[in-house]
């Protein structure tokens, strides 16, 4: 969760919103990340964890929980 915050931080205008995130926190509705930055989040996650997030997975990355699930799934696939 803390690592994900560092990925989301550059795209979250109101940084205080990051303090209270949980699995259900929606990236657009709750963190108010602009949709134009969602690809940035995916690219940054790929770079940080050295994984490739395919199209099908990327479109599921709408909230904090799904982001963590997909990154963990990709990490497990790599290992």
């Amino acid at each position: 969760m803390e690592e994900l915050k560092t990925i989301l931080k550059p795209y979250t205008v109101d940084k205080e919103l990051l303090a209270g995130i949980n699995d259900n926190t929606d990236l657009i509705k709750d963190l108010k990340i602009n949709s134009a930055n969602l690809v940035d989040v995916i690219i940054d996650a790929e770079a940080k964890y050295n994984v490739e997030i395919d199209y099908d997975s990327a479109e599921e990355m709408t909230n904090v929980g799904s982001c963590i699930d997909i990154i963990m799934k990709k990490l497990n696939t790599v290992e």
């Binding site: 690809v39 940035d40 690219i43 199209y55 990327a58």
Partner: peptide
């Protein structure tokens, strides 16, 4: 960043 294939391919 936009013109990187890894970006625009998404």
């Amino acid at each position: 960043r936009t013109i990187l294939p890894k970006f625009y391919s998404k």
